[in-house]
Structure formats: structure tokens, C-alpha cells
Design a protein around this nucleic acid. Structure first.
Lengths: 319, 319
DNA sequence: GTGAAAGCGCTAACAA
DNA sequence: TTGTTAGCGCTTTCAC
């Protein structure tokens, strides 16, 4: 493990010059070359910890997501990671289980570790993003906006996604279409629900009693579907506003012995690789990877020091 | 952001004493109390970067896995993370896509970042674990042993898992049982295959032409199953040595229009949450979480300085 | 038990 | 453009 002093000695320059070469400041060509040769010779690699200490910022980015078992978020993670790594940053993946307490603990760590920035899919509207913002760390919300409008957000056009799913079911001839959405405290859940509602009313269809709030997870989707099945007049289709609840809904249909085709399910977002896709299932692709890439780009820009007002980037579902 | 100097000044002791209190060295009770009060007062938290620089070791652990989309590995990750976090370490998740080059890049980062240790499910037997070992960083292989016998390993009893799956199929009355396993360069794949083979021969069943090597992924499993279906005499069951290949095999069966029940599939490891589990499917539970927890414990012990000879811990499939 | 002082390896003023 | 120097915040000898 050689240091810039070793390199400086071998190249017969000062440590500062070595540092400049590493960081791309202006150095005369011949000295730069000597430094490069010396660094090569000693297989020198800069000590990132020392750099972080001095710069008061590391090259780690925290990515805080609510559910690592959900492929939607792992795809986002891969998008973030690919872009971040290109820029020389490492990504620390933090899983919160939709739990704001766990989330807060991760935020504290991010600050303590002097992480360069944080990308978060907030567990709820109550997420304490201020913990990060007030510490002056760049922060980007992804997939879900925060109530804190000071932070950048990268989201999907959620109402459009809700409408798209609903329209597709209507086009299949479905009329009594229910919607299973996420917690009321998550804006994404509300917006997708609104998309469904607007499509329904636009087509003159009744929505009364057909909304259900669940938890964005399999069990919640299943329970909600069971309730819908128990209605005096069950739906003939359902929009699940995320993939996990769609799986839960399909499970409930299967348990209930519903004939495939009697009730159609539209999922917002790809299902985890399944052996067989049930025929009555419709998937609306969500641009998860683009979400991750874009969030990383916005964050990197903030890390680089861009000072513009916080922005919300809305990605179309077709992206 | 206060420092130990601020705390020292307020408590009227030297910075060294503050450091000692933080790290639990012997300090007189009254001074210790003064320091604690001062730290509380200033809401002091030690700067981890400075500590890492000084100690030449951070409190980050790298977890390098081949496939973040595979729930088997995410469950391992959660096991690792839970245990690591208890001990005050953060976990950096690194996804290699079964690619040794990507893996090597992560190893380099782990060394550069002075990470406290690395847990890896090696992409192949050719994985260059020496990169870490020779840098003196603690290293534990999980799920897959390395050819490098200097490192600790935590694995499943793979032959037993292979046998268990095979015996279960035999108990169902299956006789012509194929095996789709992973790459030849991955020991885990070989051992599970051997488990299958030993059960087959123990029951006097023929194994000729019924082995397939794939890549532990959905597409590979599907292709292998197609080949098996194209055999003059196709199998009546198949053991897939991991969950993703089991999904691929089931897909191939579905595409091939095979009646459910004609060919049974046994999967080593839980399937990702699926809407419906096909009836002809059998899952052998693998103790993924225990794998993660145990690997973390072994690593933490090494980080703490245990100097015993490298060990291989084999977890029973019943654990 | 406690404090003074010397760094860990790097970067950023400040001079030259 | 280049070098000198002073830290970033912490830990750890080494004296006392």
C-alpha cells in the first residue's frame, strides 16, 4: 500500500502535485507523466478513507428501499448502481421493510458515514427526510415523492399508469373493475388509485365499494382480493397498483377457485419470474431501471454542486 | 458536528480520555461520567471516517453475490445484514451477475475502502479470492466454497439436499429422474448433482443421459428442460439444483404442453413469490437466512481477530 | 489513570 | 505551475 508520498518521491515532485495529477488539476505534461509512471510502478491507489476525511465526503451513495424482495426495487437498484459506479461511487443498499424507524436509522448512518448522497423510496409520507436534508447531504426521492418538497424526486406518471391498466381491462370488456392500492400515506398509491378512478368515471363506470387499501405486499393484496370476492357483487377485474399485491390477488383467486378468465388482474409492474403467467393477468410495464438511472443522475448532479431549485422528474410509463 | 476536542474541552479532560471512554478503555468513573455528559450535551457522535483512517479499517462489510434478482441471495443478504448491523457494521451489497470480472472489481473496491471484511458467494471456482486474502482482509465464502481452502466457508449440505429432492421424487413413484444443475465450475452444483446421482444409484435407477449443466438462471433451466423433453425417452421428473432453474424448467414444461403431473419438478430452494404453485412442484427448503447469519458471525469473529485455522461450516437442510 | 503529541493519507490554502 | 504547510478527527504510543 503505497502513498502519494512514495509516488512523489519516486517521481521527484511534491505530494501536492501527485494529488493534482490524480484529481485532474493542471500539471505540466512531463511531470504528470512522471507521476503516472511512478504510480504505475508502485501500483499506487489513493486511499479513499483519507480522501473522505479530508473532503468531508465519501464516495458512497446510500440507496434506501422499502422491500428488497420486490424485483421492482432490485431493478431500480441496478439502475442506480450502474450509473453510480460509472461515476466512481459505490452503492450501499439499505432495506427498510416499509418501516420508518429502520429507515431513520439508515439515514443517520448515511450522515455519520459522510456518504456523498442518499436515494430513497420513502417508506411513507412521514419519512423523516429532514434528517438528511438538514445535514446538507444531497437527497433524491425515487418512485415515491416525499411531502418534503425541498428534495428532488424521480417518479413514474402514476395516474397515467393507473389509467393505462384500467383502460386495458375496459378494452377487454371488463366493466366492474376494482382497485387494490397501497397505503393511504403513500402518495404513489393515491395517484395510481386516482388514475383508475378517472378512467372508470370517464367510461361511466361505477367505483363505489371497489377501492381497497393494502400494504403493497403479497399478503395485503391477497386479503384485499378476498374481501372483494366476498362482496355481494364481486368485480370482474381488478387493478393491483403494484406487482406484489397482484400476486396476492391472483393467489386469492386461485384459492377461491375462481375460473381463470372470470376475473382479470392487471398488475402495475413486472411480476417476479414466475413459472407460468396466469392467462387472466395483464402487466403494465413500469420503467424501473430508468427510474434508478435517472435518480442516480440527479443525485450525482447535486453531489457535483448544482444549486437549482428541487425538481420532480416524471417518467412516462412508456419510457 | 462536534469532535472529541469539543467534548474534551467541555468535560475538562484530554481528547485521549474521551477516546478511551468511547472505546471502553479504563478511565476513572467520575471522568467517564463527565465525558458522557459532555458528549450527550453536544450530541457528539464519533466521525467514522477519521476512525477508519486511523485504524485502517472501516465498519463496512461487503457482501458480494452473483444474482440480486434471486430471492435465495436476498434472503442470505438479510441474514448477513441483521447480524452485521447488530454488531455496528453496515453492509454494502454488490451484485456480480455471475461475472468474475465484475466480482474482481468489487474485491478491489472492498480493499481500497478498507472494508472490515468480505462475504462472497463466488461466481465460480476461478474467483480470485486471493485479491482479498492477500490484502489481509477477513473473507468468508457463503453458499459456495472456494477452491482456495484458506478461507472460511459456510455452506449447505449440498449432497444431502440433492438426495433429499431425489428421494422425495422417488417416494412419489418417479423413476426416470433427471437433474439440471449449475456450471461445472461451481462446486455447489457438482455436489448437488452427486447427491442426486447417489440416490439414483442407491435405488438402482439409471442416470445415463439425464444430467444437464446450466447456469443457475431461468433461461438456462428452460433450455435444459427443453433438451430433456426432446429425448427419445424423456424423464418423468427432474431435480433442479436451484430455484431459478426450477422456474425455467416449469416454463419449458408449460410451453411444451406437458400435462401437470406428467413430469414433476423438485426445486432446491424456495421459489420467488408466485401467484400459483404448480401442483407438480416440490420445494426443498434451503436455510438461506441461517447461511447469511452464520457467515456474518464467522466474519465478525475474524474481524475481531480470531486466528484459528479456516473452517468450513456445513448447515443441514433442516436448519 | 491521564495527557501530550505524533501521525493515518490525503487535499487545499497560501506562497513562491 | 509547483511546493510547503496545515489540518480533516481520531487513536495510540510514550511519558508521567
Amino acid at each position: 500500500m503505497s502513498t502519494i508520498y512514495d509516488v512523489a518521491a519516486l517521481a521527484q515532485v511534491s505530494p501536492a502535485t501527485v494529488s493534482r495529477v490524480i484529481n485532474g488539476s493542471s500539471v505540466s505534461p512531463e511531470k504528470a507523466e512522471r507521476v503516472r509512471a511512478a504510480a504505475e510502478e508502485l501500483s499506487f491507489v489513493p486511499n479513499r478513507t483519507a480522501r473522505s476525511l479530508r473532503r468531508r465526503s465519501s464516495n458512497m451513495i446510500a440507496l434506501v428501499i422499502p422491500d428488497i424482495e420486490n424485483p421492482f426495487f432490485t431493478v431500480i437498484a441496478r439502475g442506480v448502481e450502474d450509473r453510480a459506479r460509472e461515476a466512481g461511487y459505490s452503492v450501499v443498499l439499505c432495506n427498510t421493510d416499509e418501516d420508518s424507524t429502520k429507515e431513520a436509522a439508515y439515514f443517520d448512518i448515511a450522515v455519520l458515514e459522510h456518504m456523498a448522497g442518499v436515494i430513497v423510496a420513502p417508506a411513507s409520507d412521514a419519512s423523516d427526510l429532514d434528517r438528511i436534508a438538514s445535514a446538507g447531504r444531497p437527497l433524491v426521492a425515487v418512485d415515491r415523492r416525499s411531502h418534503d418538497r425541498r428534495v428532488d424526486s424521480v417518479v413514474i406518471d402514476n395516474p397515467a399508469a393507473g389509467r393505462e391498466a384500467t383502460e386495458a381491462l375496459i378494452a377487454q370488456g371488463r366493466r366492474r373493475i376494482a382497485c387494490i392500492t397501497g397505503p393511504e400515506s403513500v402518495e404513489t398509491a393515491q395517484l395510481r388509485l386516482e388514475g383508475w378512478r378517472s378512467s372508470m368515471t370517464a367510461h361511466g363506470l361505477d367505483t363505489a365499494g371497489l377501492e381497497r387499501h393494502a400494504d403493497f405486499r403479497v399478503l395485503g393484496g391477497r386479503a384485499a382480493m378476498r374481501e372483494l370476492l366476498a362482496l355481494p357483487q364481486p368485480p370482474d377485474a381488478v387493478v393491483a397498483t403494484n406487482n406484489m399485491m397482484a400476486i396476492g390477488a391472483l393467489q386469492a383467486l386461485h384459492e377461491g377457485g375462481i375460473r381463470s378468465g372470470d376475473i382479470a388482474v392487471a398488475s402495475l409492474g413486472d411480476l417476479p419470474s414466475a413459472p407460468v403467467m396466469p392467462e387472466n393477468t395483464l402487466v403494465i410495464d413500469l420503467p424501473a431501471r430508468a427510474l434508478g438511472i435517472t435518480a442516480a443522475e440527479v443525485l450525482l448532479r447535486r453531489i457535483a454542486g448544482t444549486e437549482s431549485a428541487p425538481e420532480t422528474i416524471v417518467l412516462g410509463t412508456g419510457d
